[in-house]
Nucleic acid binder design. Structure first.
Length: 464
RNA sequence: GGCGCGGUGGCAGAGUGGCUAUGCAGCGGAUUGCAAAUCCGUGUAGACCGGUUCGACUCCGGUCCGUGCCUCCA
């Protein structure tokens, strides 16, 4: 078995992945806050950790991949106030849209997709414990984690407390004992219907952002677990605070940052046409919109075309490239469409697996995949086709029928009859060497978006 | 100011201390009535300056440029 290597943000090194329990690998990735449509950056995270889970499943007998839905957050409250739509309706709607959009991108549902609001009890229990052990305190209806109580704080992002305070963008609430302290629980207005809340030992209120992931990871995976992931921007403060909360409970170890999660994996950002995605620039690219214009596999391939830790520039041109690559692969597959292969796929080809095992080097893996497709088309054997399919399955691309994907013979009945009649007429013209007429028909078809290919078995056509 | 990442051929984007990345585009060829599709061939790349070395795109140091994060953020 090829050893999986992962860049561990905690140690800033590429390390061999050694599972805590080889019989059961456990992974957690921070999922979306469901107040709006997922953008292409959310999609990148979902696709990357989907591939990572696939790689792990190929190597270990049991993998549990947990990715949460954040359905309690001030951004959701704001969205609800703005649209006058009930909060629960918003979160339910956007959770469904998220899952459906991700499915279109070939992302499997995580094994467990916990919702924050289903884990309020666990969060309250955890906060209680942190107060009892002196790591948290109640102040002005808030509960805050006291950062100076955790000596190792800052180990993930590599910053010490003095530097942070020097950053000076910190808004210092008067009730904080230390400027770096962060909220575990905050009050909600019981008379305000828009503001959700739960009863707690500290009054009616709602959890802070970071505590949910600590609670859900502990609930569904247990501590310590193997891999924790998310977008690079979550490293600080979100993941740093998760570590603080979890290491300071009885399940963790205050002196060991890895007592929460052993490997930390962070994916890079997506830019759009060279610019940072932001609301003010108006260039936030939504997965939902892309799906209606492009095939899911094209978008997925594009998302995997840069290494996960590198920035990815999302451009019209890059989508076109990805589409061309997919087309090339499917053209190869079309030549071997009739070759039957067993449902039980052979082992994943070594060179391909090696690329993925090298810190999930998907660009390299894609180049191997293209080579495997070419080899399969050349060999025309079930073995070569099976080898390709085994690799493609891991990336979850090239899973459709080649002819269909490429647009051969596609269209409604009336359309097909018209095209077939024209193709037939052209064939007759060609037999009679009336090339003027046959070329004329070809141009007519092209205008209809139909491309003609003359093969030894006769003329075929496809929609472009 | 602090912490981090990166600068590779026309474009996108990897590996690698000496040997083809790959894809797209381009060029040449095969095939075709012409195309399309496919196949074959084809590129004196490595921000700059030093250093280490028999040899550096690859290691080390510096310079320049770009970029991310520093309690909204995937």
């Amino acid at each position: 078995m090829t050893t999986l290597k992962l860049h561990n943000s905690l140690t800033r090194k590429k390390e061999d992945f050694v599972p805590i329990d080889p019989e059961h690998v456990r992974i957690y990735a921070c999922g979306p806050t469901v107040y709006s449509f997922a953008h292409i950056g959310n999609a990148r995270m979902a696709v990357i950790f989907d591939v990572l889970a696939n790689v792990l499943r190929a190597q270990y007998p049991k993998v549990t991949y947990v990715s949460n839905i954040t359905d309690i957050d001030d951004k959701i409250i704001a969205a609800s106030r703005q649209t006058s739509e009930p909060l629960k309706q918003i979160t339910r709607k956007f959770t469904e849209i998220y899952n459906s959009d991700m499915r279109s991108l070939g992302v499997s549902r995580p094994d467990i997709q916990p919702r924050a609001t289903d884990h309020i009890d666990q969060m309250i229990a955890m906060i209680k414990e942190l107060i009892e052990s002196g790591h948290a305190y109640e102040a002005d209806k808030h509960v805050l984690f006291h950062v100076p109580s955790f000596e190792k704080y800052g180990g993930l992002s590599g910053r010490n407390r003095d530097e942070q305070i020097a950053g000076a963008r910190v808004e210092i609430a008067s009730y904080k004992k230390d400027p770096a302290d962060f909220v575990l629980w905050k009050p909600s207005d019981e008379d305000d219907e828009d503001e959700p809340g739960w009863h707690s030992p500290w009054g009616y209120g709602r959890p802070g952002w970071h505590i949910e992931c600590s609670a859900m990871a502990q609930e569904h995976l247990g501590l310590p677990f193997d891999i924790h992931g998310g977008g690079a921007d979550l490293k600080f403060p979100h993941h740093e605070n998760e570590i603080a909360q979890s290491c300071c409970t009885a399940h963790g170890d205050e002196n060991d940052l890895a007592s929460f999660a052993k490997y930390w994996v962070h994916n890079g950002f997506v830019t759009v046409e060279g610019e940072k995605m932001s609301k003010s620039l108006g260039n936030v690219t939504l997965a939902h919109d892309l799906i209606s214009h492009h095939k899911g596999e094209t978008l997925r391939l594009n998302l995997l075309s840069a290494h996960y830790r590198q920035p990815l520039d999302w451009t019209a041109e890059s989508i076109e490239h990805a589409k061309n690559t997919m087309e090339g692969i499917y053209q190869n597959l079309r030549e071997i469409e009739d070759i039957e292969i067993s449902e039980d796929l052979p082992p994943v080809p070594e060179k391909f697996m090696k690329a993925l095992c090298d810190d999930l080097n998907t660009p390299k893996a894609i180049s191997e995949l293209v080579a495997l497709a070419k080899k399969a088309a050349n060999d025309k054997t079930p073995e070569s086709k099976g080898a390709f399919m085994a690799a493609a399955k891991l990336l979850n691309v090239a899973q459709e029928e080649p002819s269909r994907w490429l647009g051969y013979g596609k269209g409604n009945l009336r359309e097909r009859e018209l095209i077939n009649a024209l193709v037939e007429e052209r064939s007759i013209a060609r037999l009679r060497k009336n090339f003027k007429r046959s070329d004329q028909i070809r141009d007519e078809l092209l205008e209809m978006g139909i491309v003609i290919e003359d093969t030894p078995e006769g003329t075929i056509w496809k929609k472009v």
